[in-house]
């Protein structure tokens, strides 16, 4: 049983809870892969996806996870601009609560927004990515993919390359993987590594090679063009030359290593096309893992709700 009504981040959950979610997700993935897409675990329940940022993958994944489990599903799109001009998050939350929502999956450009919402409403809040804070279901799906391949997370070396500084995915992975006994290594231009990442348990590599050397998982993170205009690195070509992952770099990883990317991918920037489409890539399979993780999270939060009703 999970210990709280919300899934806000991997910072505040235990290794046991992570294992519980992954165990359930594995089962969900098996069922979904066998063609089963209709469950009644969430029958009579309502899931609202409240997205203040664009998203195809995460949003669709939450929506279908709810639908497959039998929940009624509604989505609300709010432009980022409405965060400052429109109704306050607290008021929106109260409205959704009055409409009898049971679950709210929220994505928001500002860190801590899901926490504010969770404090305001009795609904279970699932963090679908908040600013530069966390993206717990993404990290859980990455962990699911790794655990499927290697049987355990303990002792794995996970290399993350790309925009670490602005990445909630890197953060959630670091927090979650550290709890599970994996080692997280990162490499990026110095300007894209956040202060104190090592104090949170990450190993900051001094070269691309050191980062990837012997790693069981190699994860690329999207480099956004706006970071270049912000002066964080000179050009995309310089980025890919010094920081991108190509076959040669990847050859240093473990033989059975997996390549991950939360998407959307900038082909030829953080990963070369050969790497993205190569044998080690699990990027497509990650999407199914994501569905399974979100189904598992909803199922487990529902169990918590029923136990604490």
């Amino acid at each position: 049983m999970l210990r709280q009504k919300d899934l806000l981040g991997l910072r505040d959950i235990t290794a046991e809870e992570i294992t519980l979610i992954l165990d359930n997700a594995e089962e969900m993935k098996r069922l979904v892969n066998s063609g089963k897409k209709s469950f009644d675990l969430l029958k009579g329940k309502t899931l609202v996806t409240l997205f203040y940022e664009n998203s195809t993958r995460t949003r669709t994944s939450f929506e279908l996870a709810g639908k497959y489990l039998g929940a009624t599903e509604v989505n609300i799109s709010a432009a980022s601009s409405s965060v400052q001009k429109g109704e306050t998050l607290i008021d929106t939350g109260k409205t959704l609560q009055a409409l009898k929502a049971d679950f709210i999956a929220i994505r928001h450009p500002m860190g801590g927004a899901p926490h504010l919402l969770a404090k305001t409403v009795g609904c279970s809040v699932l963090n679908g990515g908040d600013g530069m804070n966390e993206h717990p279901t993404q990290a859980l799906l990455d962990m699911l993919t790794m655990r499927e391949t290697f049987g355990t997370l303990k002792g794995l070396k996970v290399a993350i390359l790309g925009d670490i500084k602005h990445s909630r995915v890197a953060k959630s992975n670091l927090l979650g993987l550290s709890k599970m006994g994996a080692e997280v290594w990162v490499y990026a231009p110095k300007t894209l590594i956040p202060k104190g990442f090592d104090e949170l348990g990450a190993h900051i590599a001094t070269s691309r090679e050191q980062c990837v050397d012997g790693a069981e998982a190699v994860m690329g993170l999207r480099i956004q063009l706006e970071r270049q205009s912000g002066g964080l690195f000179p050009s995309l070509s310089e980025y890919s030359k010094f920081y991108g992952v190509n076959d040669e770099v990847l050859s240093r990883a473990a033989k059975n290593a997996v390549v991950l990317h939360p998407g959307p991918v900038n082909r030829g920037v953080e990963l070369t096309t050969q790497v993205i489409d190569g044998q080690k890539s699990r990027i497509e399979d990650q999407v199914t893992s994501g569905l399974a993780v979100r189904m598992a999270a909803l199922k487990l939060l529902n169990e918590y709700r029923e136990a604490h009703a």
């Binding site: 860190g111 530069m132 804070n133 966390e134 909630r168 953060k171 104190g196």
Partner: peptide
């Protein structure tokens, strides 16, 4: 403040 806790929370330091 920029430091471990700004990184932990993702709040800009």
């Amino acid at each position: 403040n920029e430091g471990k806790n700004s990184t932990l929370t993702g709040l800009k330091g």
